[in-house]
Simulated scan of single mutants.
Amino acid sequence: MLFYRAPKPNLRFYATKIPPASSTPSPSNPNKRQPQDLTPSDLCSYWDTKPPNDAQLTFANKLFTPSNHGPIKLWSASKFRTTPLSSITPEVAFLGRSNVGKSSLLNAIMGREMCWTSSKPGRTREMNAFGIGGTKSGESKVVLLDMPGYGKSSRPEWGMEIMKYLQGRKQLRRTFVLIDSLHGIKQNDADILSLLRSYAIPHQIILSKVDKVLAKKKSQIKSGVSACSIQQLQSMLQDLKPTIQPNRRVSEGPGALGEILTCGAETLIGPGQALGVSAVRWSILSAAGLDGSLEQANIAPTPAPEFPAASS
Rank of each mutant, 00 (worst) to 15 (best):
L2H: 03
L2G: 08
P19M: 14
P25W: 14
S26A: 12
N29Q: 12
L43W: 01
W47E: 05
D48H: 10
P51N: 05
A60G: 00
P66T: 07
P66D: 07
P66N: 10
G70A: 11
K73V: 11
L74P: 09
L74T: 04
A77F: 07
T83V: 08
S86V: 00
V92T: 07
A93T: 10
A93P: 08
L95N: 09
G96A: 12
R97K: 14
N107K: 10
N107L: 05
A108T: 02
A108K: 02
M114D: 13
T117W: 06
P121S: 07
G122N: 01
R123N: 12
G133I: 06
G133D: 09
G134K: 06
S137Q: 15
G138H: 09
S140E: 08
S140A: 13
V143I: 10
L144I: 10
D146E: 02
D146H: 03
R155N: 06
G159F: 04
R169K: 11
K170M: 15
R174F: 00
T175H: 14
T175S: 12
T175G: 09
S181V: 02
L182V: 08
K186T: 09
D189I: 06
I192V: 11
S194Y: 13
S194F: 11
L196Y: 09
R197N: 04
I201W: 00
L207H: 08
V213Y: 06
A215I: 04
K216G: 08
K218P: 09
Q220T: 10
Q220R: 11
S223P: 02
S229W: 01
L233I: 06
D239C: 04
I244W: 05
N247F: 04
N247Y: 08
G253L: 12
G255R: 05
G255S: 01
I269K: 02
G272R: 03
A274H: 10
V280W: 13
W282T: 03
I284K: 07
L285T: 00
S286A: 12
L290T: 08
D291V: 00
A297N: 01
P301W: 04
A310Y: 07
S311L: 13
